[in-house]
Amino acid sequence: TTVHIGNVTYHFDNPEEAVKWAKEMAEKLGLRIEIHGDTIRVE
């Protein structure tokens, strides 16, 4: 599972961890997340 924040990509072996981490980052940055299969974007 990959999480994209701007130009930076993070890789997670556990999809649930990826979603949890992306949600925390989105809250901190005042952004929202979009999930497309195994790709998560924070925008």
Rank of each mutant, 00 (worst) to 15 (best):
Thr1Asp: 02
Thr1Lys: 07
Thr1Glu: 01
Thr1Met: 15
Thr1Ala: 11
Thr2Ser: 08
Thr2Leu: 10
Thr2Trp: 09
Val3Ser: 00
Val3Gly: 01
Val3Glu: 00
Val3Ile: 05
Val3Gln: 00
His4Val: 14
His4Trp: 11
His4Met: 13
His4Ala: 08
Ile5Pro: 00
Ile5Asp: 01
Ile5Asn: 01
Ile5Ser: 01
Ile5Trp: 07
Ile5Thr: 01
Gly6Arg: 06
Gly6Glu: 07
Gly6Thr: 03
Gly6Ile: 05
Gly6Ser: 05
Gly6Pro: 01
Gly6Tyr: 08
Asn7His: 11
Asn7Thr: 10
Asn7Gly: 13
Asn7Ser: 11
Asn7Ile: 07
Asn7Val: 08
Asn7Pro: 08
Val8His: 14
Val8Arg: 15
Val8Asp: 11
Val8Pro: 01
Val8Leu: 14
Thr9Val: 14
Thr9Leu: 10
Tyr10Gln: 04
Tyr10His: 06
Tyr10Val: 12
Tyr10Arg: 13
His11Arg: 08
His11Lys: 09
His11Val: 09
Phe12Val: 01
Phe12Lys: 00
Phe12Thr: 00
Asp13Ala: 11
Asp13Pro: 10
Asp13Asn: 11
Asp13Lys: 09
Asn14Gln: 06
Asn14Cys: 06
Pro15Tyr: 15
Pro15Leu: 15
Pro15Ser: 13
Pro15Ile: 14
Pro15Cys: 11
Pro15Gln: 13
Glu16Phe: 10
Glu16Leu: 10
Glu16Val: 11
Glu16Ala: 12
Glu16Thr: 10
Glu16Cys: 08
Glu16Ile: 11
Glu16Arg: 08
Glu17Val: 09
Glu17Arg: 05
Glu17Leu: 11
Glu17Lys: 08
Ala18Ser: 01
Ala18Gln: 01
Ala18Met: 03
Val19Met: 15
Val19His: 11
Val19Ile: 15
Val19Glu: 08
Val19Trp: 14
Val19Ser: 05
Lys20Trp: 06
Lys20Phe: 06
Lys20Cys: 10
Lys20Asn: 09
Lys20Ile: 08
Trp21Val: 02
Trp21Gly: 00
Trp21Lys: 02
Trp21Arg: 01
Ala22Ser: 03
Ala22His: 00
Ala22Glu: 00
Ala22Lys: 00
Ala22Pro: 00
Lys23Ile: 12
Lys23Cys: 13
Lys23Tyr: 11
Lys23Val: 11
Lys23Asn: 09
Glu24Val: 10
Glu24Trp: 15
Glu24Pro: 01
Glu24Ala: 13
Met25Gln: 09
Met25Pro: 00
Met25Cys: 06
Met25Glu: 04
Ala26Asp: 01
Ala26Ile: 03
Ala26Val: 03
Glu27Ile: 06
Glu27Thr: 05
Glu27Asn: 09
Glu27Trp: 04
Glu27Ala: 07
Glu27Pro: 03
Glu27Gln: 06
Lys28Pro: 03
Lys28Asn: 09
Lys28Glu: 09
Lys28His: 10
Lys28Gly: 06
Lys28Phe: 10
Leu29Gly: 06
Leu29Ala: 08
Gly30Val: 03
Gly30Thr: 02
Gly30His: 10
Gly30Lys: 06
Leu31Lys: 07
Leu31Gln: 07
Leu31Cys: 13
Leu31Tyr: 11
Leu31Asp: 07
Leu31Ala: 15
Arg32Asp: 12
Arg32Pro: 10
Ile33Lys: 00
Ile33Cys: 08
Ile33Val: 14
Glu34Thr: 15
Glu34Gln: 13
Glu34His: 15
Glu34Asp: 11
Glu34Phe: 14
Ile35Gly: 02
Ile35Asp: 03
Ile35His: 05
His36Cys: 10
His36Val: 13
His36Trp: 11
His36Gln: 13
His36Met: 13
Gly37Ile: 04
Gly37Arg: 05
Gly37Leu: 05
Gly37Cys: 07
Gly37Asp: 05
Asp38Leu: 07
Asp38Ile: 06
Asp38Met: 09
Asp38Trp: 01
Asp38Glu: 08
Thr39Cys: 13
Thr39Trp: 07
Thr39Val: 13
Thr39Gln: 11
Thr39Met: 11
Ile40Asn: 02
Ile40Pro: 02
Ile40Ala: 02
Ile40His: 02
Ile40Leu: 04
Arg41Asp: 04
Arg41Ile: 14
Arg41Lys: 10
Arg41Cys: 11
Arg41Ser: 08
Arg41Thr: 12
Arg41Gln: 05
Arg41Glu: 06
Val42Ala: 04
Val42Met: 12
Glu43Gly: 15
Glu43Pro: 05
Glu43Cys: 09
Glu43Met: 15
Glu43Ala: 14
Glu43His: 14
Glu43Trp: 07
Glu43Asp: 11
Glu43Ile: 15
